[in-house]
Simulated scan of single mutants.
Amino acid sequence: MTNHHGKEFLGFLATGPAVGIPENIWKWLACPKMKTDELGRPIQAPYGMRKIEAALIDAGFKAAIIDPDHLNKHLPYAKALMFSHHDYFAFGPPSSTWWGITRKEPVNYKSFMELVNRPEIKKEKERGLKILAGGPSVWQWLWREDMIEKLGVDSLVDGEADKVVIKLAQMVLDNEPLPKYVYIGGDEAPSVDEIAEIKGASVNGLIEIMRGCARSCRFCSVTLRPTRYYPLEKIEKELLVNVRNGVKHGIIHSDDVLFYGAIGIHPR
């Protein structure tokens, strides 16, 4: 987990292999380790993970984002381990381009493989730990179905999981079998009021201001989701969470930032 020295676009280096220098130096340049508290909770975490964490906390679950280096402190007591990744198997354009040119595995892919193959995770999996995978690149598992069983993933969650994750967490606690694949379509997307506000700082102060897009580009899956504008009060609350946690700069994010508040669009 990293904030790329506070330089968001340095993250693109982490989508490639070490070139011309040792890998540990490459990692320090692209993705230095994040500071954590005594429990292993990172001082900043990816925004999407913060949203899921907040949804679970608001629903009464004991949930936290834990830096991979500190998982061993918590795994013996955990009921579920939830993964998110921007590019699980390096199928994304930057990673696949790097891999194609250099013929070397990208750092982000290698790091994830090292994490999921840790002995302590396999040990707890045998005990009954449930593993769920989500995030923006969860679609990649559908092209590597062999890895689902090999890595012991119980459920894939594809889409805006703000509401669904609460149901899945309860199923874990109730020892109910989890669905292998959950797809959240536009009709099931959460409304603005159903989207929790982050509890801890996001990486480099990134916050979203809307979801969905009404441009109707035929090649883009974002148009399948309803347009929802965050009210200014909700945006301010998340900005203040970052400020209170020492983040002095920020990034506003959406599927189309310039579309925010567009005249003639009726958001849901």
Rank of each mutant, 00 (worst) to 15 (best):
G6N: 02
K7M: 11
E8W: 12
F9S: 02
L10H: 05
L13M: 10
A14S: 12
A14Q: 14
A14D: 13
T15C: 06
G20A: 10
I21C: 10
N24S: 08
L29K: 08
A30M: 05
P32C: 03
K35H: 11
E38H: 14
R41D: 01
P42D: 01
P42T: 02
I43E: 07
I43W: 00
Q44H: 01
M49P: 00
M49R: 00
K51V: 15
K51I: 11
K51S: 10
I52C: 03
E53R: 00
A54L: 04
A55S: 08
L56S: 04
F61A: 10
F61D: 13
I66Y: 01
I66N: 02
I66H: 00
P68F: 01
D69E: 07
L71A: 09
N72R: 13
N72G: 00
H74N: 03
L75E: 11
A78H: 05
A80K: 03
A80F: 03
S84A: 15
Y88M: 06
F91I: 10
G92N: 07
P93H: 09
P94V: 14
W99K: 13
K104C: 04
V107I: 05
K110P: 02
K110W: 03
F112P: 15
E114H: 06
E114G: 12
V116S: 12
R118E: 03
I121W: 11
E124T: 05
E124R: 05
R127C: 04
L129C: 02
L129N: 04
K130H: 06
I131N: 08
I131G: 00
I131F: 04
L132Y: 03
L132T: 07
A133Y: 11
G134E: 09
G134K: 04
G134F: 05
S137F: 09
V138K: 09
W139G: 09
Q140A: 04
W143E: 15
I148L: 12
I148E: 14
G152C: 03
V153K: 04
L156I: 10
V164H: 02
A169C: 09
Q170S: 05
Q170Y: 01
Q170T: 06
L173C: 06
L173D: 07
N175D: 09
E176V: 03
L178E: 05
P179K: 10
P179S: 11
K180D: 08
K180R: 14
Y183V: 04
G185P: 07
G186D: 06
A189I: 10
S191Q: 07
S191W: 09
V192S: 01
D193G: 04
D193N: 02
E197F: 06
K199T: 10
G200H: 06
A201R: 07
N204Q: 07
G205M: 08
I207N: 03
M210I: 05
M210Y: 01
C213A: 13
R218Q: 09
F219L: 08
V222T: 14
T223Q: 02
P226K: 02
T227G: 03
R228H: 11
Y229H: 15
P231D: 10
K234V: 14
K237N: 08
K237I: 08
L239T: 08
L240W: 00
V241G: 12
V241A: 10
N245Y: 14
N245H: 14
N245C: 11
G246K: 05
G246H: 13
H249G: 04
G250E: 01
I252N: 12
V257Y: 09
V257C: 14
L258C: 06
Y260G: 13
Y260H: 09
G264I: 12
G264P: 02
H266E: 15
